[in-house]
């Protein structure tokens, strides 16, 4: 049986994730309601606007089921807006703050790289990978502090020599500030499917 991976489809680039997952032989499902979560092996929170996703999730009672998903140790991956939602702490939020799911012991700076003018593509060195990963950063966040249990998979250094984390993992939680669903580097989706496989076999 193929792995069943849900992609949160409240807003954003969920279709791109679904295409990548299907290319790797997984069964991908658009998730809009809490009752869809039970049957899944893994979940992806895609890129989009984190405030929009947080507000729509709240309106349809998805916030607590998603928090429960994370606390039960089920595999989850957040890209860009998804990374923000999975962070325990965030700066640069909208006034009055925004809904976070938490679970990932990091501090995220929401629009770390600035406005769309500053969005960029680059080749990223990833810990343990031979070839660099083509990465697309769109009004991207960055991880600026990590807790003790967080493994750093990739860093980005700006021209001034200041480094931030852009790919992190904490057990069953994967977070990337960039968009593997846009660049087409399937290694990230493969890594997540391996995490899911490891989770279902234990």
């Amino acid at each position: 049986m193929p792995l069943r991976i849900g992609v949160l489809a409240l807003q954003g680039a969920f279709r791109e994730h679904i295409q990548r997952l299907e290319a790797l032989g997984a069964a991908a499902v658009e998730v809009r309601r809490a009752d869809q979560l039970g049957k899944l092996d893994g979940l992806i929170i895609p890129g989009g606007e984190s405030t929009t996703m947080g507000l729509v999730a709240e309106r349809w009672g998805l916030v607590n089921p998603l928090r429960q998903w994370v606390s039960e140790g089920r595999p989850i991956w957040g890209t860009c807006a998804g990374l923000i939602l999975l962070a325990e702490r965030a700066t640069g939020q909208k006034r009055h703050g925004q809904t976070l799911l938490g679970g990932l012991d990091v501090l995220v700076n929401r629009n770390f790289f600035g406005s769309q003018r500053d969005s960029f593509e680059a080749e990223l060195q990833v810990a343990g990978w031979d070839a660099p990963s083509p990465a697309v950063f769109i009004r991207a966040p960055a991880v600026v502090e990590t807790g003790p249990g967080v493994e750093i998979l990739a860093e980005w250094t700006d021209p001034e020599g200041c480094s931030v984390q852009v790919a992190v993992r904490q057990g069953h939680i994967l977070g990337t500030a960039f968009h593997p669903e846009l660049s087409g580097d399937l290694r990230w989706h493969r890594l997540f499917l391996q995490m899911v496989e490891a989770g279902t076999s234990t």
Binding site: R15, G47, T52, I138, R139, T157
Partner: peptide, 25 residues
């Protein structure tokens, strides 16, 4: 191209990419 770290801004992927993030919104 920002030569010091290889970041490429204003590419078509980056431009079309923001629109992809707005989908469903």
């Amino acid at each position: 191209i920002n030569s010091s770290n290889g970041a490429r801004t204003g590419t078509y992927t980056v431009k079309a990419g923001l629109a992809q993030m707005l989908k469903g919104g």
